[in-house]
């Protein structure tokens, strides 16, 4: 009679990047499985993430004065990053050569979610992609992305997208594929949580959001477009090489994808000016 060993891992695919999460705590994996259920995958993983849950005092940063709330630093050997966060605390070592990640964190799905956002913001850089503060809605396989700082109306736009597939209301992944750009929904939602579906679509247009009394679309010159886009990229490292890559990516996106400033009333009528633009 053989012995069946329970596999304690969960594989997720977000933005076309697969990662397997390993933990000795199957209860914790079940919590994550429920949270990220729409993004569970059977594909082979590119990254292996090993999670060690530690008790409260073990991650105290009290003696490490001067460390910012979120700290991402390239290792001295150049083969990865040390990622630390004080609130929702965790410490992670990301090895970009072996593609293995060791994480110590509290037993909290919020800690893990926080880590996962930062992890993806890092891994996307090398793929020419971005994790963007944006909402997105698609229609017939083509998606528009609405980006802007907090309070600009991303969630409002998502709520006003009836009849379309909402990819996200908080964070969208933009990645190049075969010379074009695709938009991916993510499990990182804000207030609007219709089901967190794992959807991707071809990127049709980018809209920098401005709440207004009237709907209008204004083309953005390239410099303004790159600056508006860059400001909405979710990124935490101060590494100059990575910042340079992000700047490159923003310039590349602006070169290939139409980008506008959308002044919109807070009702569904703004879709008329977008459809007219298409």
């Amino acid at each position: 009679m053989g012995i069946v060993t329970e596999t304690k891992k969960l594989t997720l695919s977000i933005g076309g990047i697969c990662c397997s999460i390993h933990s000795e705590d199957s209860r914790f994996l079940d919590v994550l499985r429920a949270r990220y259920q729409s993004f569970e995958a059977l594909d082979p993983a590119t990254y292996e993430i090993f999670v060690q849950l530690v008790p409260f005092p073990a991650l105290s940063f009290d003696n490490t004065g001067g460390i910012p709330r979120i700290d991402v630093k390239r290792t001295s050997t150049g083969d990865g990053y040390l990622v630390r966060r004080k609130d929702n605390p965790f410490v992670a070592m990301v090895n970009t050569l072996s593609r293995k990640v060791q994480v110590k964190m509290w037993d909290s799905e919020y800690c893990f979610d926080s880590f996962l956002r930062i992890f993806y913001s890092l891994t996307l850089v090398d793929e020419g992609g971005l994790l963007l503060h944006a909402s997105s809605a698609s229609d017939r396989g083509r998606a528009n992305v609405f980006f802007g700082p907090s309070g600009s109306g991303k969630t409002t736009v998502a709520r006003l997208s009836q009849g379309r597939t909402v990819l996200t209301d908080e964070l969208a992944i933009i990645k190049p594929l075969d010379g074009r750009y695709k938009v991916y929904g993510t499990p990182f939602w804000g207030e609007f949580t219709p089901g967190r579906s794992n959807v991707q679509a071809e990127l049709n247009g980018l809209y920098s959001l401005k709440k207004d009394q009237r709907n209008s679309i204004l083309p953005l010159d390239k410099i303004r477009a790159v600056m508006d886009l860059y400001r909405c990229v979710l990124f935490f490292s101060d590494d100059s090489q990575l910042l340079s890559k992000i700047l490159d990516t923003c310039c590349a996106v602006v070169d290939k994808v139409p980008i506008y400033e959308l002044h919109f009333r807070q009702d569904p009528s703004f879709w008329e000016v977008i459809n007219d633009q298409d």
Partner: peptide
């Protein structure tokens, strides 16, 4: 020119 400097990261 668009310039960005570390550690500030502001463009």
């Amino acid at each position: 020119a668009l310039i960005v400097g570390a550690p500030e990261g502001k463009l």
